[in-house]
Design a binder for these strands. Structure first.
Length: 560
RNA sequence: GCCCCAGUAGCUCAGGUGGAUAGAGCGGCUGCCUUCUAAGCAGCGGGCCACAGGUUCGAAUCCUGUCUGGGGCGCCA
């Protein structure tokens, strides 16, 4: 259980007790937000503003209530987290963690090891995080980097929070876009064989397709020029698609983004799931025919307007398969919850997906769509918006090559998804040493250095006496480490992983401060026990810091 | 025109389900390496939290309006 929740429970008990014995009149307690982290350390480790809120209903002054509550809560001593409890004007109940208990947490963290930071907020519920899902018609470019990093860090954190997480990439391998891609590939393929073959109007013009065409020409010769069109499309198209997916996978891999499932849109059509969903909608009157097309009546379910699902030509729109896809997520796939990470250019589709949920008779709250605002890329004076429509494409792989995967991840993660962000390439490259990412990683490298030298000296700290950890810097470090589970728990609610990099910086600061104040390794025999205790603490810090870095998908370097 | 997101220090951004004196990094200025990595530490300076109202014991935080910036409003995806 989180320390915060333990303290909230103690406060609730105290309030109930005081109300039973008449010390305090009856008043309602808020369901959440009972206990918070005060901004100032002098206000304790935790604080509750309950008395201020309850004063009116209780018809007592906030300070009277605060005193009554504080008096009703007995400290835990060294065995539990609750140390000093006191009332503070204008009406707070402040809690200070027990120093004895705090010291013991150094060992507890070390024993938790890689599981430190885990919480059980998810209780094993199944959640799918679908992200990136770029059309497989070209390489991943920078515009997708933010969503990629956001989704992967969120998935990692939700797993730590006790959810069973599936990371999924939706491969749009059906539809008009794919057809255009295939015709573009075929043109490049034919051109590579010296044939006059114009690229389709609005075809894909990237150099990568010229290369792919040449590659296919080399491998297959002119075989597909003569072949039956359908056969050529099926075989050459599939090969081209798989090559693109390889490129995409490699790009994403370079920034540490991986998926459990690569879901093929085509499969929805192949085995009848698409038709089933359409039948479901039609039976319930959610569709109508107008102007030769079939429409989904989303306006009746909260959207601004209706949307076409089957064109006049008879071809389904992307939206139609998306409906079938989402029905599949909750139905056949059985996810309790689905999180889609989309770019700002898709925000208009949120209301219609919510309408889809209602039409499918699913609770709309089970689907969360996170919208990441667009990134402005700055390269010195040049500003280039990282949107799909921009002519200047910078690939994700190129960005990683220039800036490095860790720095990229940290930069993208440090900003709240709903904030637009500026990514200065020049700065990221030039001042990489000043980047906070190195500040955090440097703390880990320092820890690794100490532990390495300790091991060389044959030091063992399993039997360390944590009671020797009495310095302010030591206790501050333990306090900061203990916040990690709270951060994980909170991200499970807010779905905002940008708390991670901010926490990581604070944790690194706490360690650097400890490093400066407290010498760990000492050759003086008189310090033997203290050295052991500090090695235990340093080891715990290694665990907390590497976990924080791991949740962000960043490396924890042994040396820098 | 309608809808979504944002506006906090010179710059980039946290804080936002209301709480105590609004924070960090970068940049600027001062100090600190005989001992575990100075990619570090300590300190100084820097704010009408866009603006105007409202709710409240209390507003950067919630509500309304205005302004500014970004995005969206296709039988594209």
């Amino acid at each position: 259980m989180l320390v915060r929740d333990h303290i909230a429970d103690r406060l609730r008990e105290a309030a109930a007790q005081a109300q039973r014995d008449g010390t305090l009149p009856p008043f309602d307690l808020p369901a959440s937000g009972l206990v918070e982290r005060p901004q100032k350390a002098e206000h304790g480790d935790f604080a509750s503003g309950l008395p201020l809120r309850a004063a009116k209903a209780a018809r007592r002054s906030p300070m009277e209530i605060a005193s009554a509550l504080a008096n009703a809560i007995a400290p835990d001593g060294d065995g539990g987290p609750v140390g000093e409890v006191y009332a503070a004007p204008p009406g707070f109940v402040n809690f200070r963690l027990s120093a004895g208990w705090l010291r013991g947490q150094a060992r507890a963290i070390r024993e938790a090891g890689a599981a430190f930071g885990d919480v059980d907020a998810g209780a094993g519920r199944r959640v799918q995080v679908e992200f990136v899902s770029v059309n497989p018609t070209g390489p991943v470019h920078v515009g997708h980097a933010r969503g990629a990093v956001l989704g992967s860090a969120l998935a990692r954190t939700l797993a730590a929070a006790g959810f069973e997480v599936t990371r999924e990439y939706y491969v749009n391998d059906a539809g008009a876009q794919m057809d255009l891609f295939y015709r573009s590939v075929f043109a490049r393929y034919a051109q590579a064989l010296g044939k006059e073959a114009p690229l389709p109007e609005d075809g894909y013009r990237g150099a990568y397709l010229t290369e792919l065409g040449a590659e296919l020409a080399e491998r297959h010769g002119s075989r597909y020029l003569e072949a039956d069109e359908a056969k050529a499309k099926a075989e050459l198209g599939e090969e081209a698609l798989n090559r693109m997916l390889d490129v995409i996978r490699a790009d994403l891999d370079s920034i540490g983004v991986e998926f459990d499932v690569w879901f093929r849109e085509r499969d929805l059509y192949a085995d009848g799931r698409y038709e089933e969903t359409m039948a479901f909608l039609r039976e319930r009157g959610h569709t109508s025919r107008r102007d030769g097309a079939e429409w989904f009546a989303s306006s009746a379910l909260g959207d601004e307007k209706d949307n076409v699902i089957v064109r006049g030509t008879g071809a389904p729109t992307y939206f139609a398969s998306d409906i079938a896809y989402h029905r599949d997520k909750f139905g056949r796939r059985g996810f309790d919850r689905v999180i889609n990470v989309w770019g700002a250019d898709h925000q208009g589709h949120v209301p219609r997906m919510k309408a889809v949920m209602r039409a499918l008779e699913l609770d709309p709250d089970r689907l969360t769509i996170l919208i990441a605002q667009l990134v402005t890329l700055k390269d010195g004076e040049d500003i280039v918006r990282a949107s799909k429509r921009t002519g200047r494409i910078i690939t994700l792989g190129g960005l990683v090559d220039e800036v490095g995967a860790d720095a990229c991840r940290f930069f993208f993660l440090a900003r709240a998804a709903e904030s637009q962000m500026e990514f200065d390439l020049e700065l990221a490259k030039k001042q990489s040493a000043d980047n906070p990412v190195y500040y955090v990683q440097y703390a880990h490298a320092r820890i690794a250095g100490i532990l390495r030298q300790a091991a060389e000296r044959g030091a063992v700290w399993d039997d360390a006496d944590a009671a020797l950890l009495t310095d302010d810097a030591e206790l501050a470090l333990i306090r900061k480490m203990l916040q990690l589970p709270e951060v994980v728990d909170s991200i499970a609610v807010t779905l905002a992983p940008h708390a991670l990099p901010h926490y990581a910086v604070e944790l690194a600061t706490a360690f650097h401060w400890f490093y400066d104040h407290c010498r760990v390794l000492s050759s003086d025999p008189a310090d033997a026990e203290l050295t052991k205790a500090r090695l235990l603490l340093t080891d715990a810090a290694r665990i907390a810091l590497s976990r924080a870095l791991g949740l962000m998908g960043m490396s924890a370097p042994e040396a820098m």
